[in-house]
Design a protein around this nucleic acid. Structure first.
Lengths: 339, 339
DNA sequence: GTGAAAGCGCTAACAA
DNA sequence: TTGTTAGCGCTTTCAC
């Protein structure tokens, strides 16, 4: 199998390689006669240009890295779909990568993506301290942070209003009479987990409900960990009246654990979740939650990327904060207050 | 920002570019002295090799295209994770693409992937007639078909035992006394939908139950379409005693529709599904289904890809058929037979 | 309007 | 063990 290159096409069409390129890119005047001859040759030879060679010249790959914590979490999946929705129209291709919340894996992935010369990177960092940002920028890779932001550095980012959302959920539980509220939080080195923790604390504080260390549980944004933490609560006899799940997958783990231990939601334990679980509408009881919009997040990220790529000037970096929708289900019991 | 290349590194280290390359690739003898000098320079300059240039030379990109029908279907998502599980160890990166069951979109995606010079392609074709196969092979791209196979051409593929699985599910319904069984099938130009239809027909035939055209519903593997088809059944008063859902997402649509119309599963209608829905274990009643193993499918595909890439000889093309696990839930009612 | 030729950054054959 | 150089396939400047 012989490889077909511009050279072959040029030979067949009886023109130079430069002309072939001009016809294909349609960016310089070419006589109609020559044009048709070239296009004919292209067709006959079934020629496809080599994108790699092109990239080497142009310094653009049309590849965008999308790095998230957990590719099997539908939240990140939908986020990716949002990005794709915007970028595919512009003929970009996405490389999806999953860090599994490991900074080491993240580091490795980023190095590969730098080598691959992705034009831009959309990343959900697994630590709010992110030294690689400079390296990426030094390599002329546009970066947009998504869902999770950094403590210091200024970079474009799209995030949720985690603090307010968390405050709202906690406050809702308080209003329903709960004071024994466990927070199953994610990896605290992420801004999302940290801000949700802050919102929780703030609501408790406002409600004059003391914070109890035993109710701060680290679920590491993992279904399994969440399951185990609930198991521990049950076995220790420390069951709170409500569990606030820090994200969708942990909520799934919690619901499964309660189900397995024959505890009823909300009769035995109330449950709320930051983020909606898969097939939420098919599950009884409906879980009261904050519905994020990862697809929209992805779209916004895609749009920013496009803007950054096209306008080469350094735009002011921008923080987009998306609001969440509160969905009231039947997963929280009204507790009678003992006055 | 100056771009760092082998040249810079060579200059700083006081050696030739060839030597730098040799040190980096560690494939030719280099004196220890030189080696340390080069590595030092690499470190100081914070040099990362340009993978594009490398690819142009080596004719390998370490990029694998994964083309599926619907990236938001967890079945394909898990399939992708399986592929990644095997290939990431070998430093391959995946480009995920979604055809949305459109042959036109598929065509476009494939052309892009050819240009991008992916080393291999894992694809769930949206039509069992797949003329692009030749073009791909002509471009020296290794191809593995996944989940769906072709009518004619011989290509490596990993598929499910759709016929037997479908027969089993249908037969199960028959044994439970059902004779009015609607099949909500997918796009019949795919082998999966076709084989499942065949299995359904075959079981009916064996059970001496006549096939009823009105119960062959095209859901096009879409949640919305499935929902609408059920709505139509309900409104027309033609409700069968059982609905067999041709895949997981259609099952979701069906359950949602029945729920919205206040029809009880299994009291009013029985439901079975080819493929397990998301959070199946949290949903009441448990849906009787065939549990596929998309992750394993993905792994197998990854393994075949690796084998094809490393051994350059043309191996016999191979068809791997995976079996499914039957999971009995409580979504099918026993119907008393009128003798 | 078209061709010749340089060069993107890297690797490998050949020389030394 | 190390350096020189050609060339991967394409685009684009410069000349005609």
């Amino acid at each position: 199998m012989k490889k077909i290159t511009v050279k072959e096409v040029a030979n067949i069409a009886g023109v130079s390689t430069a002309t072939v390129s001009r016809v294909l890119n349609n960016n310089y005047p070419v006589s109609d006669d020559v044009k048709t001859r070239v296009l004919e040759a292209v067709k006959n030879l079934n020629y496809t240009p080599n994108g790699i060679a092109r990239s080497l010249k142009s310094n653009r790959t049309n590849l965008i890295g999308v790095v998230v914590a957990d590719i099997s979490n539908s939240f990140f999946m939908n986020l990716g779909k949002g990005v794709e929705d915007v970028l595919e129209k512009e003929d970009y291709n996405l490389i999806f990568c999953s860090t599994n919340e490991s900074a080491i894996k993240e580091q490795k992935i980023l190095n590969v993506l730098i080598e691959k010369k992705v034009d831009a990177l959309i990343i959900s960092v697994c630590d709010s301290n992110f030294p690689m940002l400079e390296t990426l920028m030094a390599n002329d890779i546009k970066v947009v942070l998504i869902d999770r932001k950094l403590t210091s550095a200024h970079a474009d980012c799209i995030v949720n209003d985690n603090f307010s959302g968390s405050f709202l959920l906690t406050d809702y539980l308080l209003k329903k009479g709960h004071t024994q509220i466990a927070l199953l939080h994610g990896n605290l080195s992420t801004s999302t987990a940290q801000e949700r923790l802050d919102g929780y604390k703030s609501a408790l504080n406002k409600g004059n409900v003391p914070l109890q260390e035993k109710y701060l549980l680290d679920g590491n944004y993992s279904r399994q960990r969440a399951y185990k933490e609930v198991e521990k609560l049950i076995q220790s006899g420390n069951l709170p009246t409500a569990i606030y799940c820090g994200n969708n997958v942990m909520a799934e783990g919690v619901i499964k654990a309660l189900k397995d231990y024959k505890l009823d939601i909300p009769q035995d334990v109330s449950v709320v979740s930051f983020g909606m679980i898969d097939n939420q509408e098919l599950i009884e009881p409906r879980i009261t939650c904050l519905n994020q919009n990862p697809f929209l997040m992805g779209q916004k990220a895609g749009e920013i990327i496009l803007r950054k790529i096209s306008s080469n000037e350094d735009l002011m970096s921008k923080e987009v904060v998306l609001c969440n929708e509160f969905i009231e289900g039947e997963s929280v019991k009204q507790i009678n207050l003992v006055k």
